[in-house]
Amino acid sequence: MNSLKIDNLQASIGDKSILHGLSLEIPKGEVHAIMGPNGSGKSTLAKVLSGHPDYEVTGGTATLDDDSLLGLEPDEISRLGLFLAFQYPMEVPGVSIANFIRAALNARLKEGEKIKAVEYYKDLYAHMDDLGMDRKFTSRSLNDGFSGGEKKRCEILQMSMLNPKYAILDETDSGLDIDALRVVSDGVNRMRNPERGILVITHYQRLLDYIVPDYVHVMSEGKIVRTGGKELALELEDRGYDWIKQEAVAS
């Protein structure tokens, strides 16, 4: 199986149920987008798939290729090949970007393998150049005092360095001006290839002008309520989310 497959997923936090039987399959080589109103559970889905300990999975399955993700530690899921670009990346003082990414790469090495510093920096700088990031950033503390745009670039930098099989981008467009949006989208588009599946979560249609998806899903109240092509995003832009909600209730 070459896909990230979610089937009838149910999850809650505390005694609040958020995902109510969500199903979605992202095959390698495709870009899917999830759109939906605030509070519909988009970030919850991303965090549950990534193994966030606050959420309890109460039903359903989620598999990455042949491996079940549910019940694994976040670091195990990451090493299986899932990457989550955070909607709100954490600030970690004193941990430099270079050391952080190196630690993440180190975690993927086999016994006896080592990262060569020269090659590592060459690679890191190349990716930073692509994202228009100043090389001085390597020694800056992770996200500490970064602007919104800098944080999002830093997420894409991590993604491109870690080369995941599947990536989920949670509102990577929020807080970006148009130039930053273009740079970040280019970064994501460079990562599109037949070996990788990408899930873009967004509230606005605008991002999908830059990252053109193969499929658009609409999420409402913890479920996918509609799936279509990229034109569905435009329709949502025109008509808002309410008509979808109403249809969902009617059916």
């Binding site: 193994g51 955070f86 050391n99």
Partner: peptide, 17 residues
Amino acid sequence: FYLQSRGITSEKSEKLI
């Protein structure tokens, strides 16, 4: 969670932080 989500074990993540 943020550090772990990059593949770094919880023990190593704590040390890094």
